[in-house]
């Protein structure tokens, strides 16, 4: 296996664990993602995808946990409205992050960078 292919495998692995961290393997997925990041050399495609993965997950962590936490803190644990916002917000935004990570995964399989709109040329 040449180094190009190896990098590509690691890139898709990074994208996969970014997705897994968002879904069934929280925390564990992130640790593996960090390990892949560590092994990658800058400018390589696996570096690119592990950075995207880390960014996505840090951002998702903030957007989901921090914002939901703030909502509960500010809204009060016993207020029904808090839960209306927290549950709808968390479900919807979480799903959007999963969809984004899925698209990243699919892109990583081709070894290209993200860019490129899904519909246009």
């Amino acid at each position: 296996m040449n180094s190009d292919e190896l990098q590509l495998k690691r890139a898709s692995k990074a994208a996969l664990f970014s997705l897994l961290n968002l879904t069934v393997l929280p925390v564990i997925g992130f640790i593996i993602l960090l390990l892949i990041y560590q092994k990658s050399s800058s400018d390589s495609i696996d570096h690119y995808y592990s950075v995207i993965g880390i960014k996505t997950n840090v951002f998702a962590g903030i957007a989901l946990l921090l914002v939901s936490g703030l909502m509960i803190l500010l809204g009060g644990f016993d207020s029904p409205w808090t839960w209306v916002y927290v549950v709808s917000y968390f479900t919807f935004v979480h799903a959007l992050f999963i969809l984004f990570a899925t698209w990243v995964l699919v892109r990583s399989w081709t070894g290209e960078k993200l860019k490129k709109n899904i519909l246009s040329k």
Partner: peptide, 12 residues
């Protein structure tokens, strides 16, 4: 680049 690597995906 994409052509060269399109064979990789089925492995995953």
């Amino acid at each position: 680049m994409s052509k060269a690597h399109s064979e990789i995906e089925p492995e995953l």
